[in-house]
Every structure is written in structure tokens, then in C-alpha cells.
Design a protein around this nucleic acid. Structure first.
Length: 305
DNA sequence: AAGAGATGCAACCGCGACCAA
DNA sequence: CTTGGTCGCGGTTGCATCTCT
């Protein structure tokens, strides 16, 4: 048994919205609000649309103060750094950019920003013919080969973030990211990434390996990241002198080296369970509570100073 | 000039989270 | 505790437009 449909598909219009539909929806919501029930709303106002479609149209297009296009460098900066830190949590990223919608940011990232930062696919393939880092899912001839992960267990998102990170390290002064310091990849991460890149088209059964904690140092204007998390109801709990996000996906702490005090993020994206990686005593982890032993972290690991 | 391929973006889909009954 | 309805999110698709050959 499948899931019950949210509306009567047969009597529901799909596709682009007409100006009349927009006007109907907008004037109703302006006057009465959404009433807390999107599903019932289209019937109330005589729109042959699914409630979800109405919600999407309102949130992404009709809502007041929506900006479209024309992303500033500062916005690029924020999107990029948050993507590296937290991945494709578009709604959280959107919350940091007033007037921007998650859909808009997602599209912008997938179609432009990623290419701007990583280089275009064709150029990339010339450099690394066996590498397919971007998963340009919808773009026609790529359809058949859009795996959700590489054969060594890295998700595309994780691989993309690693590659982005690696790329950015090689740029001494990326104008987009002028106010951030990019840590070196841990040698193990570097090895993983290269492995993933070489491995793309082969069927090697390489042992699945975890990503290591990935520290990213952020300074202003992103140092209000704590507010961001509060605003988005992310549970930040104290953990061993650092903070751990409730979702266990990454951590942040306040690193004070005596001269500057900065936020440090540890990406904590495991692809396998029960892995304890102990290299030079720098990191340890538990797959059960997704926690990292921060006390063992040296400042060298973060590549900060 | 025309056709094929690439790109951008609005909209859809399905799933998990959440909540009230 | 279970169930059913709704919300919100991220991934994906469809299609119009642009670019290239």
C-alpha cells in the first residue's frame, strides 16, 4: 500500500502558475493568512492546485521581500562556507540570507556557484578524465550515471565538499573567500579524495572509510553562526568544552589561541559505522553518539596558525 | 541559419518529522 | 502507543532559453 495522496491528483492543475492564480493566492494570504492549513487553502479560494503547490508558490515567489538572482559576493561567500560546513541544508543556508529562498539558493549553487568555484565539468574532465565529481543529475546525458556515492563510500555531497575544500586550499587569495582561512586536508582525507577521484569508473572494492573531522575556521561575518543555529532551532549542547549539534552532523567550538578567538567546525560525516580512527592521537570518534574527542585535537590539525 | 547540446529555474515528488486525536 | 493528516525539506524533473558548431 502506497502513501495516500495529499490531494486529488486528477482534479489538480500542475505546471507554471498563471498571473490570475498568483493574484488569487496572494490576495487571499495577504488578507487572511494561510490559516495554518495549506491543504485546505486552495479549495477555499477556488484554486485547482495542490496545497503543497500553493505553499511552494507562496514561499518561493509570492511572499513579500523575495529577491531573485543577483547574488552578491558576500552571499556567495556565505553559501559556499555553509555548504562546506553543513552540506545541502538549503533551508538553514537560506535562513542566513534574507529574501532568499532555499530553492533559489539550491538552484544557484547547482547551476552556477559550484561551477564558479570548482570549475566546469568539461575543464575538469580534461584534467582528470576519470573523475566525475559533479552529479549534474538532470542534465540529460548524465542521467544514467548519477550515483549517489562513489565506490569508496563517499557520498557525492561529501566528495564535493572535500574537493571544494581542496580546491580552495590551492587558492592563495580567493576573492570570494577573503575572510576565511582554509585548513589543510588531513592527509587521510586527501588520500581518500584522490582515491575517490581515481576510483570513479572502476569497480574496485575499496574498503569504505570515514571522513575525518574537518575543521573549518570562520571569522566575521560568519561568527554569528551561533545565532544562526538558535534561529533554526538546532540544539546546541555543551560537550567536553566544545559544542555539539543535536543532529550529530558537525560540531563547533570556540578556539582561542591567545590572539584571536574563532569558531571552528568539525564536519562529522561518517559513511560507515563502528569506525574508530586513531591516527597520531589526533582524532577519535564513536559512531554511536557521533562525538569527537576534541581534547586530543592539536591546533596543527586545524591548519589554523 | 538551423539543429543539437547546455543551461537556468520553476515546480513537482516523495519521504521523514511533527503533532493532535 | 498508534494512527492519520500536514508540513517542510532536499532531490529531481520539465521545459524554455541560450550557446555552440
Amino acid at each position: 500500500m502506497g502513501r495516500a495522496p495529499c490531494c486529488d491528483k486528477a482534479n489538480v492543475k500542475k505546471g507554471p502558475w498563471s498571473p490570475e492564480e498568483d493574484a488569487k493566492l496572494k490576495s487571499y494570504i495577504d488578507q487572511y493568512g494561510t490559516g495554518g492549513n495549506w491543504i485546505a487553502l486552495p479549495q477555499k479560494i477556488g484554486l485547482k492546485r495542490c496545497g503543497k503547490s500553493c505553499r511552494l508558490r507562496w514561499l518561493n515567489y509570492l511572499r513579500p521581500n523575495i529577491k531573485h538572482g543577483g547574488f552578491s559576493e558576500e552571499e556567495d561567500n556565505i553559501i559556499c562556507s555553509l555548504y562546506i560546513s553543513i552540506g545541502s541544508r538549503w533551508s538553514i543556508i537560506a535562513a542566513q540570507l534574507p529574501g532568499r529562498t532555499d530553492n533559489d539558493i539550491k538552484n544557484y549553487w547547482n547551476t552556477r556557484l559550484k561551477k564558479k568555484l570548482l570549475g566546469r565539468r568539461k575543464q575538469q574532465q580534461q584534467l582528470h578524465p576519470a573523475t566525475t565529481v559533479e552529479h549534474d543529475h538532470h542534465h540529460h546525458q548524465d542521467h544514467q550515471q548519477s550515483p549517489t556515492s562513489t565506490s569508496n563510500g563517499l557520498s557525492n555531497s561529501a566528495l564535493e565538499r572535500l574537493q571544494l575544500h581542496m580546491k580552495l586550499q590551492t587558492l592563495n587569495q580567493n576573492p570570494l573567500l577573503h575572510n576565511m582561512l582554509w585548513p589543510k586536508l588531513h592527509p587521510f582525507q586527501e588520500k581518500l579524495l584522490l582515491q575517490a577521484m581515481n576510483d570513479e569508473n572502476s569497480n574496485n572494492n575499496i574498503m569504505q572509510l570515514p571522513l575525518l573531522p574537518q575543521p573549518i575556521m570562520m571569522e566575521s561575518p560568519l561568527s554569528n553562526i551561533g545565532n544562526m543555529m538558535n534561529n533554526n532551532n538546532i540544539n546546541v549542547s555543551s560537550y567536553g568544552g566544545a559544542f555539539q549539534l543535536g543532529g550529530g552532523d558537525f560540531m563547533m567550538g570556540n578556539l582561542d589561541n591567545g590572539t584571536t578567538s574563532s569558531l571552528v567546525w568539525w564536519s562529522n560525516e561518517f559513511e560507515t559505522n563502528d569506525v574508530n580512527y586513531d591516527r597520531s592521537g589526533s582524532f577519535s570518534s564513536s559512531s554511536n553518539d557521533s562525538s569527537w574527542d576534541c581534547a586530543l585535537r592539536s591546533s596543527d590539525d586545524a591548519g589554523l596558525f
